[in-house]
């Protein structure tokens, strides 16, 4: 399967491991990622909080390029990019006036025909393949699936999964052989883009997420957004220090977890790039593997 690929800024920088793991599982699942040539920033929070037209025009340009490059569907792994692209697509489809102005800004014909997918949407389509190719090393690994704000919301934009009680990540995680835990903070805000400007709030919000996952017995949290990852991973040191240093909680990208489930080499999944070491997860996998081998020998 071929699919357009919009990495966005994060996957080329702070979330390189997300890109690496995505590339690895794409190869394993026979997905060819066609990176959109000459893509630009989605505009993120900066654009849509200052200039509405800019916040539509920036993603529209990228969508136009994808259309010209015959990419019918585009994967935007970053939840914020996904949201911006999908929002722009819908704004243009719904409002003729906006469509006209965007057309003028782009200066080229644009049909707005490209479909935008989040990683949750793409992998939800592929749970069958994941299950078939799963090597089951994650058996009994308890993970908390964390959606954050933008993966399934707002419902008008995403039109995917239940916006207040979603289950798509759980289904993917199950297909990859791990066990999702039931917990209550899957949709709470991590603090998002306030990471630098209001660190105290981010720490407070992320702490309650980490605590809830820990209480639910999770051994790792699975995320699908570079911003969530950075808040939960990068800020965890500060949070844990104040919380009297409980066990660190590894934060994995969805693609990394799926990669582990598919039995890919951890080195190819960028697991070494995290601030919180995912070693406990790898140890768990090894223990499961040893047990399995023991059983075979016996």
């Amino acid at each position: 399967m071929n699919i357009g690929y919009f990495p966005g800024c994060s996957l080329h920088a702070t979330a390189r491991e997300y890109a690496e793991s995505l590339t690895a599982i794409a190869a394993a699942l026979d997905i060819k990622l066609d990176e959109i040539k000459d893509w630009a920033c989605c505009g993120a929070t900066s654009a849509h909080s200052t200039n509405h037209m800019l916040s539509v025009a920036l993603p529209a340009r990228t969508l136009m390029l994808a259309e010209k490059q015959n990419l019918g569907r585009v994967l935007a792994p970053c939840a914020a990019c996904y949201n911006r692209l999908a929002s722009a697509r819908q704004a243009i489809a719904k409002d003729k006036e906006i469509a006209g102005r965007i057309q003028a800004i782009l200066g080229q014909s644009f049909e707005n025909s490209v479909q935008v997918l989040s990683i949750a949407q793409l992998l939800s389509e592929m749970t069958g393949e994941i299950r078939d190719k799963c090597k089951r090393p994650l058996r009994n690994l308890k993970v908390a699936c964390y959606y954050g704000c933008l993966l399934v919301r707002p419902p008008e934009i995403c039109q995917f999964d239940d916006p207040e009680s979603p289950s798509s990540l759980e289904n993917i995680v199950k297909a990859a052989g791990a066990t999702p835990v039931q917990w209550d903070m899957a949709l709470e805000c991590c603090g998002g883009g306030f990471s630098l400007s209001r660190t105290a709030s981010v720490v407070r919000l992320s702490r309650s997420i980490l605590q809830s996952a820990r209480k639910a017995g999770a051994q790792a949290i699975v995320v699908a957004c570079p911003m969530c990852h950075s808040n939960l991973d990068f800020r965890q040191g500060a949070i844990n220090m104040r919380d009297n240093a409980p066990e660190p909680m590894p934060i994995l990208f969805l693609s990394q977890l799926v990669g582990l489930g598919l039995g890919l080499d951890p080195a190819r999944l960028g697991l070494s790039r995290h601030f919180v070491s995912p070693q406990p997860v790898l140890n768990f996998i090894n223990a499961v593997k040893l047990q399995a081998e023991d059983r075979e020998h016996a």
Partner: peptide
């Protein structure tokens, strides 16, 4: 979560039933 009518959408955020 499950509703017999398309126009209705449940309130997953209230955890009714779970």
């Amino acid at each position: 979560k499950s509703q017999e009518l398309d126009i209705l959408r449940g309130y997953g955020e209230y955890g009714y039933g779970t």
